[in-house]
């Protein structure tokens, strides 16, 4: 049986996937002040995962990242709705966000916004959506 030798692909993937993941997390975290955000971050992360899938196949992927991607969809949505509902605790309208500056030991002065939490919700949803669509279509026989 013909067995493809995709050594170069796998090797480069193992490097590029991490770069992609790092970049995607950068996009997610920097979104509030620079181009990026939950949506594009989520897409970028899924690009990294798809790349791994293409290089290693679904068996390896499941071993490396044992995640049920469909569960990410409700998780993300719950986070997003949760940030919205949380504003009720402070007597504010739904989805009212706030921000503040905090001193964090390693990083120093940091700006933290509750909108970031919402962006995490977007991130997880987009990630879950993209990967479950692609994997369910790709694994369909």
């Amino acid at each position: 049986m013909y067995k493809p030798n995709d050594l170069i692909l796998r090797t480069t993937t193992s490097l590029i996937a991490f770069i992609l993941l790092g970049f995607s997390i950068y996009l997610l975290l920097a979104g509030h002040n620079a181009p990026g955000g939950g949506f594009i971050g989520g897409l970028m992360t899924s690009a990294a995962i798809v790349l791994m899938y293409m290089a290693y196949g679904s068996a390896v992927l499941e071993k490396v990242l044992p995640i049920n991607y469909r569960l990410l969809i409700p998780t993300g949505l719950l986070i997003a709705v949760g940030t919205g509902l949380a504003s009720f605790i402070f007597g504010e309208a739904f989805l009212s966000h706030t921000y503040g500056y905090f001193h964090v030991p390693v990083f120093g002065e940091l700006e933290l916004a509750t909108a970031m939490l919402f962006d995490f919700g977007v991130y997880f949803t987009v990630l879950g959506v993209t990967i479950s669509i692609i994997l369910s279509i790709a694994n369909d026989h």
Binding site: H32, G37, F39, H97, A115, F118, D119, V122, T125
Partner: peptide, 22 residues
């Protein structure tokens, strides 16, 4: 609290739209 106006609109000013889009 953000300088990326597009993102601030998406997640803060008009977050409800985004919520339903996801």
């Amino acid at each position: 609290g953000g300088d990326n106006v597009v993102n601030v609109i998406l997640v803060d000013m008009r977050g409800l739209d985004t919520l339903f889009e996801i």
